[in-house]
Deep mutational scan, measured.
Amino acid sequence: KKKPLTQEQLEDARRLKAIYEKKKNELGLSQESVADKMGMGQSGVGALFNGINALNAYNAALLAKILKVSVEEFSP
Protein backbone atom coordinates (compact mmCIF):
# COMPACT_ATOMS: atom_id res chain seq x y z
CA LYS A 1 0.00 0.00 0.00
CA LYS A 2 1.29 3.44 -0.93
CA LYS A 3 1.92 6.05 1.72
CA PRO A 4 -0.43 9.02 1.47
CA LEU A 5 1.23 12.19 0.23
CA THR A 6 2.24 14.82 2.76
CA GLN A 7 0.53 18.20 2.79
CA GLU A 8 3.64 19.68 1.17
CA GLN A 9 3.57 17.10 -1.65
CA LEU A 10 -0.14 17.77 -2.22
CA GLU A 11 0.54 21.51 -2.43
CA ASP A 12 3.35 20.91 -4.95
CA ALA A 13 0.94 18.85 -7.08
CA ARG A 14 -1.72 21.58 -6.86
CA ARG A 15 0.76 24.26 -7.96
CA LEU A 16 2.09 22.04 -10.75
CA LYS A 17 -1.42 21.38 -12.08
CA ALA A 18 -2.25 25.10 -11.95
CA ILE A 19 0.89 25.93 -13.97
CA TYR A 20 0.01 23.20 -16.49
CA GLU A 21 -3.57 24.51 -16.84
CA LYS A 22 -2.27 28.06 -17.34
CA LYS A 23 0.41 27.15 -19.88
CA LYS A 24 -0.99 24.17 -21.81
CA ASN A 25 -2.62 26.24 -24.58
CA GLU A 26 0.36 28.58 -24.98
CA LEU A 27 2.73 25.60 -25.21
CA GLY A 28 0.36 23.36 -27.18
CA LEU A 29 0.40 20.64 -24.53
CA SER A 30 -2.03 17.92 -23.51
CA GLN A 31 -1.57 15.37 -20.74
CA GLU A 32 -0.90 12.85 -23.52
CA SER A 33 1.87 14.97 -25.08
CA VAL A 34 3.42 15.61 -21.66
CA ALA A 35 3.27 11.86 -20.98
CA ASP A 36 5.00 11.13 -24.32
CA LYS A 37 7.79 13.58 -23.50
CA MET A 38 8.20 11.94 -20.07
CA GLY A 39 8.07 8.36 -21.36
CA MET A 40 5.04 7.44 -19.27
CA GLY A 41 1.32 6.97 -19.74
CA GLN A 42 -1.24 9.76 -19.51
CA SER A 43 -2.63 8.23 -16.32
CA GLY A 44 0.83 8.58 -14.73
CA VAL A 45 0.92 12.28 -15.55
CA GLY A 46 -2.62 12.68 -14.22
CA ALA A 47 -1.58 10.96 -10.99
CA LEU A 48 1.29 13.46 -10.57
CA PHE A 49 -0.96 16.46 -11.33
CA ASN A 50 -3.71 15.24 -9.00
CA GLY A 51 -1.52 14.42 -6.01
CA ILE A 52 -2.02 10.66 -6.26
CA ASN A 53 1.67 9.93 -6.87
CA ALA A 54 4.49 11.96 -5.35
CA LEU A 55 6.82 13.90 -7.62
CA ASN A 56 10.41 12.72 -7.52
CA ALA A 57 13.31 15.01 -8.42
CA TYR A 58 13.67 13.50 -11.90
CA ASN A 59 10.00 13.99 -12.84
CA ALA A 60 9.94 17.46 -11.28
CA ALA A 61 12.95 18.51 -13.40
CA LEU A 62 11.41 17.00 -16.54
CA LEU A 63 8.05 18.71 -15.96
CA ALA A 64 9.76 22.03 -15.27
CA LYS A 65 11.58 21.75 -18.60
CA ILE A 66 8.40 20.78 -20.50
CA LEU A 67 6.40 23.64 -18.89
CA LYS A 68 9.31 26.11 -19.26
CA VAL A 69 9.35 27.01 -15.56
CA SER A 70 11.76 26.38 -12.70
CA VAL A 71 11.04 23.55 -10.25
CA GLU A 72 10.87 26.20 -7.50
CA GLU A 73 7.70 27.62 -9.09
CA PHE A 74 5.74 24.51 -8.07
CA SER A 75 8.00 22.96 -5.43
CA PRO A 76 9.54 25.79 -3.39
Rank of each mutant, 00 (worst) to 15 (best):
8 E>N: 07
3 K>R: 11
40 M>R: 03
9 Q>V: 00
26 E>R: 09
76 P>D: 06
63 L>Q: 05
57 A>F: 11
41 G>A: 15
37 K>L: 13
37 K>P: 02
75 S>M: 06
44 G>P: 03
21 E>D: 12
41 G>M: 12
12 D>C: 09
55 L>I: 10
49 F>S: 04
68 K>V: 01
22 K>Y: 08
34 V>L: 13
53 N>K: 14
19 I>G: 03
52 I>D: 13
12 D>P: 01
44 G>L: 11
32 E>K: 14
62 L>I: 11
21 E>H: 11
10 L>G: 05
50 N>R: 06
11 E>K: 09
4 P>D: 12
48 L>D: 07
14 R>P: 00
53 N>L: 10
10 L>M: 13
45 V>E: 08
72 E>M: 10
45 V>T: 05
8 E>W: 09
36 D>M: 14
2 K>L: 11
45 V>H: 04
42 Q>T: 15
68 K>F: 00
18 A>I: 09
72 E>H: 14
13 A>G: 05
3 K>Q: 12
21 E>T: 08
24 K>P: 01
64 A>L: 00
17 K>F: 10
4 P>Q: 14
34 V>N: 00
46 G>Y: 15
36 D>L: 13
67 L>P: 10
74 F>R: 03
9 Q>H: 01
64 A>Q: 04
65 K>M: 01
66 I>C: 04
50 N>I: 00
63 L>V: 09
42 Q>C: 13
30 S>R: 04
16 L>R: 03
14 R>H: 09
37 K>V: 10
20 Y>E: 03
71 V>P: 08
18 A>M: 12
54 A>C: 09
26 E>A: 11
14 R>W: 08
71 V>R: 05
4 P>M: 15
19 I>M: 05
32 E>H: 10
70 S>A: 11
58 Y>H: 15
69 V>I: 06
11 E>W: 00
4 P>G: 14
67 L>V: 02
49 F>K: 05
59 N>C: 08
21 E>Q: 11
2 K>T: 11
58 Y>D: 15
21 E>C: 10
63 L>W: 01
58 Y>S: 14
72 E>W: 11
29 L>S: 03
24 K>I: 01
55 L>G: 03
66 I>A: 07
47 A>D: 13
53 N>I: 14
58 Y>F: 11
59 N>R: 04
27 L>G: 05
41 G>L: 13
59 N>K: 08
43 S>H: 12
16 L>A: 04
42 Q>K: 15
17 K>V: 08
29 L>N: 02
63 L>S: 06
27 L>M: 07
62 L>R: 14
20 Y>I: 07
35 A>S: 08
28 G>S: 09
1 K>G: 13
42 Q>D: 05
74 F>N: 07
11 E>Y: 08
44 G>A: 15
73 E>K: 08
9 Q>L: 01
16 L>I: 04
14 R>K: 13
19 I>W: 00
35 A>N: 02
73 E>L: 00
54 A>Q: 07
32 E>V: 10
22 K>T: 11
36 D>F: 11
54 A>I: 03
10 L>E: 10
33 S>L: 14
35 A>H: 02
72 E>I: 06
49 F>H: 04
66 I>R: 07
52 I>K: 13
19 I>K: 05
49 F>V: 06
31 Q>M: 15
61 A>M: 10
5 L>M: 11
64 A>T: 04
65 K>R: 12
49 F>G: 04
21 E>V: 09
49 F>Y: 02
51 G>I: 00
59 N>A: 07
50 N>Q: 09
37 K>Q: 14
74 F>S: 04
57 A>K: 14
45 V>W: 00
69 V>L: 03
72 E>G: 13
67 L>I: 01
9 Q>M: 03
38 M>K: 01
48 L>N: 07
74 F>P: 03
49 F>D: 07
5 L>G: 07
55 L>V: 04
72 E>T: 12
71 V>H: 08
7 Q>H: 10
14 R>L: 07
69 V>M: 00
52 I>N: 11
61 A>Y: 09
12 D>W: 06
56 N>L: 00
